[in-house]
Amino acid sequence: MSTETNAMMKRVLSCCLFVLCLGAFAPAYGGELSRYDETVVLHSDGSAAVRLSLVLAGQAEPTIRIPVRQAALLNLQARGIAPDAVRQVENKGNYFVALDFSASGTPPAELEISFRVKNYFAGGGPSAPFGNRELGYRFVNVTFARIEMFSAELVLPGGFVFNAVSSFSPKARKSGTAFPYAFSRKDGQDIVRIAADDVKLGDEIALACTFKSTKKSKLLLLALIVLAVAYLVFFRDLLKSGGDAAGTKA
């Protein structure tokens, strides 16, 4: 292998590592997933409870590795698989949830993993202007496993509302659904759901957004009421015959 090729490989590997570090999760799985659903319930302290549901299809490898972006997962639990078959592993600075089916023989058709993470977003207070907090979600499929239906939901803590989406992927297409994300509300909590079909190797599903408190400035409310009343008082002359056409003057 030439030096140039080596350098290129290093760059590619660096990019992959970067993706793994930033990405939320990506299953290292040789077969096929018919569903991958993820729910991230955020708490106001910045932590999050993550629930991951997988529906497997096709022939599975003895071990499934799901890259995660944090070193420490709290209260890691699994359903549909023996508890000791789920563990967190580290490989050259990358972290995974490893699902080991070698003991049980065949993997289950459906399984669910849940855990908590600290510092999913900056919980201390607003991290952006206008009281906004930044929130990002990113999923990159780094394996050959094709995911038929993918969805991820970010659930905000009560008292917060999504403000704006700054970027998203896949981009709006001129055929089919224009936007891959939608907002909704359940039990007083705002939810954004991003979904995609047929997620193949290298496909990215990402959403960067901001959210903020539902509280609004009372000062602005008061100021505008005063302004409206003041206008009615000081511009009474508009109604007089021959009165100036107020603001229409150049």
């Binding site: 403000n163 704006a164 959210f211």
Partner: peptide, 9 residues
Amino acid sequence: PTPAGLTAA
């Protein structure tokens, strides 16, 4: 109150 499905923006 912000209606469901609508962002603050």
